[in-house]
Design a protein around this nucleic acid. Sequence first.
DNA 1: GTATGCTTTCGGC
DNA 2: TTACGGCCGAAAGCATAC
Length: 367
Amino acid sequence: MQARVVMLVDFDYFFAQCEELRNPALKGKPVVVGVYSGRTSESGAVSTANYVAREYGVKSGIPLHLAKKRLKGTEAVFLPVDGGFYEQISNKIMHALRGYADSFEKTSIDEAYLDVTRKARGSYKVARDLAKKMKLFVKKEFGIIFSVGVGPNKLVAKIAADSQKPDGLTVIKPEQVESFLSPLPVNRLLGVGVKTAAKLDTIGIKTVGDLARYDVQRLMSVFGKKLGVYFHNSARGVDNEPVQEKDEVESISRISTLKENTRDLTVMLEKTDQLIEDIHKDVVARNIKFKQVSVIAIMTDLSVRSRSKTLETVTKDAEVLKQAVRELFEKFLGESELEIRRVGVKISSFAKEQAKQKRLTSFFQGN
DNA sequence: GTATGCTTTCGGC
DNA sequence: TTACGGCCGAAAGCATAC
């Protein structure tokens, strides 16, 4: 099989970079883009911060209050997330990037894989030049910088991109894969979380190199055949996952912070009705049906709980969704004592709406 | 014994 | 002194099927 050349493009500190683009006077100052929950004027969390802000220990996920404290005395600028604006910019850049690839796979608003095997004629030198060209073009045309990882597959490209940013370009040729991956901790591999890393640790495996050298039969006896083989391959930088457009998202969710903590079902359902309306718009726009419904509750102590149910049949009906959400929260309230701070609704297990029998029946069905 | 599917939790950004 | 979003896919844990 022909060796592939795969790139991972990752837009640097994307939301904050978009804000710098809109207002260049922000450059050089700490920029913090946050989600304001509306509870108090400053209640919320950091979504993204630029690298100036990161110098002060301000990063994704920390409370806005804490960010403000860490940036006291600086010219820091705090801005609310403007998702629509970032999406417009992302869409334009993604469209441009597609042109550089044989096949393209957008994985999020700020990340995409490009298979450039043919465009680079299988050469890593050509691929590097292509990446440089891409970076220059996007910077000139859209004013946005990003980091690129190049490797023989998605796994290596992703880890390469992470290893140098912002504005990085890291190329790992096939013959460099082993020495590149070998010293990294095992949790850098996709599929290795905290639990798996701990389990690997008990058999003396800490680095990707340790894992690569471990006997595959033993690995299979510990993790089962499928996972064992998967880990064995990953550690050796072997990954045959194709770069291909994903047709649809796997889940759609909305979550929101309540004005006050509560255990009052009516209050919670009032909020989830708004979320459901929003989700339903998305369902109609995407022309999909869903089979799985989940509710999410974030408790006073910020712990996260969820409950879900699988419907008898797929549906696109908002009323069915409302009823399922009511049932799930009723059940949940019976199982826990803490007050609830935030509530969320999620749908998943999608099926495409059949294009067939499109005419009279669906037209007159009313939904 | 392993695969598969469902449910809940975790973690990155 | 504390402070705390929204969204997604991955990971983990378990039950059941094969």
